[in-house]
């Protein structure tokens, strides 16, 4: 599998470490139902057969966390974006979502 690292170019997947589902958000620890929310966050997964957003870390490269969009049936990679870009975009006025 070749991962198109936005910083380093396409690299073999063995340079990367995999973490998993990138659609999860760490819950508010102060919420009244924090225990339930953390249970879902830490343990429950959609685990879809198909398009999957997931975290990969370029351990033997730029050491950046990437959000990949990959099909779990074909392993085809649709997109690889740096994790941090999400934040900067979200911070931008008028950013979608």
């Amino acid at each position: 599998m070749r991962i198109p690292c936005p910083y380093c170019g396409a690299r073999d997947a063995h340079e990367f470490a995999y973490l998993g589902d990138a659609t999860l958000t760490r819950p508010d620890p102060a919420a009244a139902d924090a225990a339930d929310r953390f249970h879902d966050y830490v343990y429950l997964r959609d685990n879809p057969a198909g398009r999957h957003q997931e975290w990969w870390y370029h351990a033997n490269g730029c050491r950046q966390w990437l959000r990949l969009t990959r099909d779990t049936r074909t392993h085809a990679i649709e997109a690889a974006e740096p994790a941090r870009r999400d934040a900067t975009q979200a911070d931008m006025p008028g950013a979608a979502s």
Partner: peptide, 11 residues
Amino acid sequence: LEFCLQVLWPE
């Protein structure tokens, strides 16, 4: 630590 910094708390 990089995960915390880049994903959880990029701010």
